[in-house]
Write a protein that binds this DNA or RNA. Structure first.
Lengths: 215, 215
DNA sequence: TCATATGGTGACGGATAACTCACAAAGTGA
DNA sequence: TCACTTTGTGAGTTATCCGTCACCATATGA
């Protein structure tokens, strides 16, 4: 009982809670918040409706718990990637790789996450989207700071670092969307993204002479 | 009566229909499909509920009509841009410019459009998202063909043209999202996008020597 | 002026779904 | 075995909202 610091009861409670969340995740990601009823979640998770309300005070609360889990998982893994050792390019590469990996491993979560962050998040009245957006914002800023440092070092071209961060995220998100829609149609990987984005943004030494205006 | 080919009645009918659509657009883009009731649309458009059903057979139908309008507007303007004269780079630049312009001029539409295409489109049972996605798909393919041609001409690097199209769209979408969230915070324009994307993807003559692997 | 048609109305029916609560079952400890 | 607590139950309550339909009002035309 001491090895995990939680009593059997507590662990059971958490297991049940987790089971409900898993079922809810599946359903929400398949059909969307408004097209899933508490009865449906109850049935599929083999609990009674009333039981759900012992775990979550209402439907929105359940949804929020789910989204928080997602957000935290993604956030911590991306932040960790940005904190790896190495130069700025390596950090960013690690970040793209981490993103693809976590996202690929949690496609149901991604579907929900994107619905909330990219599509307008109409599912929850307030608070949640703010939290998630702040967390996302924090990540983008950290990424921008890496770009900034890379620019100062002369590694990258002098674009607005924040916009570079957005652009890079935009590319990787685009590929992820594509993957969600057509999983096997257009294979891609982190290297590809890095190549498209950096092969030309990345700048060192003799590349300078390539800076002729293109337009 | 002949100058417009429509009777006064017919014109009034269309005007009323358009008024309803405008109100619905505003509401849907603010609160999402499920958080807007027909009563609300009725009230704000100063028609009775029953009247709405004279124009649209149900709520979903109203929403579809709206989305079709959007989709067609965006689609035709993007396709037109891709069909302009000029080399591949110019076509693509025209396309990015057109996209930014139409989207900026119709931010309410964009919010809805993105909710339907990027977030999972759970608002409508079937058919609509398929149509929109097919239309989007058609555009991406045409864009990819332009890339393909540019690659064959030696203008662009040898990436998978379809993936390039996705990446470019990803970047411009990312900026648009950003703009929707924080309209004045991080100004950007088509040139910036083109620069980030092409300054290094764009390839000619002496740029060849820059092709050293970056990673 | 009156009959008819058309566009417009909004109270109402019916269905669905979130949420409650009185109760049952299972577990616990003596 | 028995009292008591905890966990789980699901029929029922309440509220919302879609969609209808019997009914106005205005316009048109004879």
């Amino acid at each position: 009982m001491e090895k995990s610091k939680l009593s059997r009861k507590e662990r059971e409670y958490l297991r049940h809670r987790q089971e409900i969340l898993q079922v809810a995740l599946k359903l929400f990601s398949e059909k969307g918040f408004h097209n899933v009823s508490m009865h449906e979640i109850a049935k599929k998770s083999e609990f009674a409706v009333g039981t759900l309300y012992k775990f979550f005070s209402n439907k929105e609360d359940l949804y929020k718990a789910l989204m928080l889990e997602v957000s935290n998982m993604f956030h911590s893994s991306l932040m960790a990637a940005l904190a790896t050792s190495g130069n700025e390019l390596e950090k960013i590469k690690a970040c793209v790789e981490a993103k693809l990996k976590v996202f690929m491993d949690n496609l149901d979560y991604v579907r929900l996450y994107l619905a909330e962050t990219r599509g307008a998040g109409f599912n929850v009245k307030a608070g949640l989207d703010t939290d998630i957006k702040m967390s996302y914002e924090e990540f983008v800023k950290k990424l921008a700071r890496v770009f900034e440092k890379g620019i100062k070092k002369g590694l990258f071209k002098k674009f607005d670092s924040y916009l570079l961060a957005i652009a890079l995220n935009g590319i990787s998100n685009a590929f992820l969307f594509q993957h969600l829609e057509y999983p096997d149609a257009h294979p891609f990987d982190a290297d590809l993204i890095i190549n498209i984005f950096f092969h030309r943004v990345y700048e060192k030494g003799e590349m300078e002479k390539c800076n002729t205006k293109t337009v």
